[in-house]
Structure formats: structure tokens, C-alpha cells
């Protein structure tokens, strides 16, 4: 799967009072998906056109030539409509880049939306290489080209479908902070959800950071958490910054008394 950098989102408010965000695809990723689709169109054309034209040319060469023209038109105009309708908002190019066309309200696409957004490529592609559409994408709050505006659609990125693996937070190491239950309780009380989320995110993504950035990030995070609650030197001496942050995350997100690490280390739970 191709990794895509994070960007704009569109928030959907459900009648149940729940809000969720759909991450939007940027113009560059969409352009790459279009290049991939262009490749598919060419392959489709060079496969179907000789086949269809040859078949009809057996009846009449003129008919074969006519079918060739019509095949080209049908493929160039119909490719986006057909694939987005049958693949529920995805063309092969969009699928390759994990993109999907959705209704702006997060609902399923209607046929008229698919047709309008694809026919309006005629204006989005002006003067060449989707310049108008690209500029509209950059200027639009929801990253919409003109066809998307008219059809009330967005192009969303499909997010990863995996749950966080909390087992590896401490890396199997003894969590020295858990030896101080009153201080860990204070830490939980004082850390804001955003700070906790940031730390968890850093731990989860640590392997994707380059070594210098990784050291600098965890040094900054460790220093920040040390200002919130000061643990005795015995709990944090000789512990690298990264391990300290991992211990903090473990304390924040794994409070249950039967926590795996606690059971492994045999320390009393918080």
C-alpha cells in the first residue's frame, strides 16, 4: 500500500451526536491516482479498440473504423463513471492510492453524483493536466475540484484499519514508574488527553522516525512529562528518554490491575 501524508479532514456530525472525521486526499495524491487511471485507460483502449474494431471490420471496414472512434469516446468518458459506480467511489487508480469518492455528508454516492463529477472533468482538466481542478482543490475548504463541488462529493483517504498494539508499549521492560502508585495516579490526573495521545502516537510511530528525530522527539517528550510529575531519581535514572515516555504511556493507557506488564514484572499495580 502507498503511504500518503496527512492533510485536511471533513467532520461529519451524526444525529447520534457523534462526530467523526474523514481524512481528505490532497491534489498531488489525486493527480497521481489520475495518472494511474490514465494508464488503465490506455491499456483498456489498446486492448479493446483493436478487438472491437477488428470484429466489426469483418462485417464492414467502415463499421470497424466507426466502432474504433466510439470505443475511444466510451472509454475516455465512461471509464470514471463506470468504475466509480461499480467500485463504490473508487477507480483502479484511486484504489491503488487508497482513495475513495464519498458524498460530502459521508453518505453513499448516487449515480447522478458520479456522472456529474466525471462529466465536469471537461472543465477541471482545462487548460491542460487538470490545472483548473488542481487550483480549485487547493482553494477549496474540502479539497474539491469543480466537479466535486457540483456533485457534492469529496475524495477521502482510507485510513488504516488496525487497532493499536498496546502489548509492545513498554517493550517488555520493567516499568519503574509503577513502583510509585501515588505519583502515577497524579500523572494520570494531570496529563491532558491531547498530551497522552501525542505520547502514544510517538511510541506507536517510533520505528518510522529517523534516528536523530527519534532521539530529539523523545527527549522533548520525556522532559515535558518530568515537569508534570517528578518521580524519584530511582524511578528514572539510567532510563533512556524513549523508555521513560513508554513507561508514561503504559501508566496512562494501561491502568487495569491485571495489566500484562505488571503481571510479568510482578510489581504492584496502580
Amino acid at each position: 500500500m502507498i503511504a500518503i501524508p496527512h492533510g485536511k479532514t471533513v467532520e461529519i456530525h451524526t444525529p447520534e451526536g457523534v462526530t467523526f472525521a474523514l481524512p481528505l486526499a490532497g491534489p498531488v495524491v489525486r493527480f497521481l491516482a489520475w495518472i494511474a487511471d490514465l494508464g488503465c485507460i490506455l491499456v483498456l483502449f489498446f486492448t479493446l479498440q483493436p478487438l472491437m474494431a477488428g470484429l466489426f471490420a469483418m462485417l464492414d471496414p467502415d463499421l470497424g473504423a466507426a466502432v474504433s472512434v466510439l470505443t475511444y469516446f466510451a472509454i475516455t468518458v465512461g471509464y470514471g463513471i463506470a468504475t466509480e459506480w461499480w467500485l463504490r467511489g473508487q477507480t483502479p487508480g484511486k484504489r491503488l492510492f487508497s482513495l475513495r469518492v464519498l458524498d460530502l455528508q459521508g453518505l453513499r454516492l448516487r449515480f447522478s453524483q458520479v456522472v456529474i463529477r466525471n462529466l465536469l472533468r471537461a472543465v477541471d482538466s482545462l487548460p491542460l493536466a487538470y490545472l483548473v481542478g488542481g487550483l480549485a482543490c487547493f482553494g477549496s475548504r474540502h479539497g474539491q475540484r469543480l466537479g466535486d463541488l457540483a456533485a457534492n462529493t469529496i475524495v477521502a483517504r482510507r485510513t488504516a484499519l488496525t487497532l493499536p498494539d498496546l502489548e509492545g508499549i513498554t517493550g517488555g521492560q520493567f516499568n519503574s514508574l509503577r513502583a510509585y502508585p501515588r505519583l502515577t495516579a497524579r500523572l494520570r490526573q494531570r496529563v491532558a488527553p491531547e498530551e497522552a495521545g501525542l505520547a502514544l502516537s510517538a511510541v506507536m510511530r517510533r520505528s518510522r522516525l529517523n534516528p536523530e528525530a527519534r532521539v530529539a522527539l523523545f527527549a522533548e517528550l520525556a522532559a515535558h512529562f518530568k515537569t508534570i510529575v517528578t518521580f524519584p531519581p530511582a524511578a528514572c535514572e539510567d532510563i533512556p528518554d524513549e523508555q521513560y515516555v513508554r513507561n508514561v504511556v503504559d501508566v496512562l493507557f494501561r491502568r487495569s490491575s491485571g495489566s500484562l506488564n505488571d503481571r510479568r514484572s510482578g510489581t504492584p499495580s496502580a
Partner: peptide, 24 residues
């Protein structure tokens, strides 16, 4: 209560798909 991006992204994905199926 907990700002965990990965967990939130997972749940948002599932809820968005279910929302689309229910309200269309």
C-alpha cells in the same frame, strides 16, 4: 477521554461506513 490517533482512526472508519449504510 483518550486522544489515541490510531484507535480513533480505526473507529472513525468503521463508524463512517456504518453511518453511510444506515443513513443513505
Amino acid at each position: 477521554y483518550a486522544t489515541d490517533p490510531q484507535m480513533r482512526a480505526y473507529l472513525e472508519n468503521v463508524v463512517a461506513r456504518a453511518y453511510s449504510a444506515i443513513y443513505t
